[in-house]
Design a binder for these strands. Structure first.
Lengths: 204, 204
DNA sequence: CTCGACATGGGACCCAAGGCCAATTTCCGC
DNA sequence: GCGGAAATTGGCCTTGGGTCCCATGTCGAG
């Protein structure tokens, strides 16, 4: 449906699996990127493309969990689904705790894998939207002068202009000026909106 | 250290396990509540006691995952650790996804179990603190009159007194009265504090 | 040196918020 | 029906927030 179909990165050292899954996912409408190793995946991986990763646990070089760790370092974290033949419980627990969307075992039902991928893509979309909002926020923050940022903090903390002025050692009039320009640059009309903006940004 | 030591609920149909773990956890300073079945556990379970639950997967009657589901329905959700002999990967994935703190397999290292319990107790403590704050908030909300609640919503939304008055079809003066009493009852001095209070309450 | 961004404020003015005092109406429970 | 809580509104005054115009001073880039 979207103009840019989501990409599923397949990472497995078994060529047969790679071919079979590529066919399955391709016919499901996904763009597929098959890789035989973590290194190969990292080389062709574009964090800006929406999609998810389906990883085997056993890989030459860096293993699946290690790759998941690398991926988690980036933002927005690419959603990961594990698909492995010889997984054990500790590995599955570790993977899910580290944020994996699912942990499946071979052989896998096509419907199961597709459902997991669908869920992962939902996660990815939401993560991207959140990241986009956070970027916009960071940008607006960057346009503030140091003084305006200080005033922002105090306003969000619920301080009065008079108190802020006393804290900063300036006239109340001046804080009004900074405050007004800050509200303008942040694109909000009310303290309520400002607080929501800031807490949403710093929270998740 | 705390005057009321946290309780660890042990649910396992193997008497030997129950005895052995009771001894281990008792000597670690925990209060222990051994149960042979989900039903027995639910009967002696007091949600108000701080602590966590260590569940086997296979139980007579309701199984571990079912029990976890029941527990999740309550608030604050009692933290659950699974400890099982014949667990499989899908069960472990399901358990962790459903919020289990950990999923361990028998035989378990004492240090592993104790670490998991320690983590679970941290979760429990934080959940209790959050629930306590939410209760306090709900109580304050309950003390508001219907009108005050309406005004609360509009104020948090950043509306002006004049707009609120127009929306409610009343005089601006009246909204000021409601607003003042609402701020008083909510125990906040500024709109910023109010917004934080409300969003923290409705968020997590 | 000049320009622009930043910080600083004074004066005037307007609107918003809130406190104080007083009043009416409505509805509920005893 | 009476007491009381809730909702409603008025007037009056103070404080707070926000805007406009204007002015000064610093500092770094060009």
């Amino acid at each position: 449906m979207p103009p840019v179909p989501p990409t599923v990165y397949l990472v497995d050292d078994d060529k047969g699996i790679l071919v079979a899954l590529s066919r399955l996912l391709g016919s499901a409408g996904y763009s597929v990127e098959p890789c035989a190793s973590a290194e190969e995946f990292l080389a062709c991986h574009d964090p800006d493309v929406p999609g998810c990763a389906v990883l085997d646990l056993q890989l030459p070089g860096m293993d699946g969990l290690g790759l998941q760790g690398s991926l988690a370092g980036e933002a927005p974290g690419r959603p990961v689904i594990f698909l492995t033949g010889r997984g054990d419980i500790p590995a599955s627990v570790k993977a899910i705790k580290a944020g994996a969307v699912d942990f499946l075992t071979k052989p896998v039902e096509a419907s199961t894998l597709l459902a997991a991928i669908s869920a992962a893509l939902v996660h990815d979309l939401q993560a991207r939207q959140g990241a986009s909002q956070r970027r916009a926020m960071t940008e607006r923050l960057a346009n503030l002068t140091p003084r305006e940022r200080e005033v922002l903090g105090q306003v969000v903390a619920g301080r009065r202009n008079k108190q802020i002025a006393a804290d900063l050692g300036i006239a109340e009039k001046t804080t009004k000026v900074h405050r007004g320009r800050m509200m303008e640059k942040m694109g909000v009309q009310s303290v309520a909106d400002l607080v929501r903006l800031v807490t949403v940004h710093n929270g998740p």
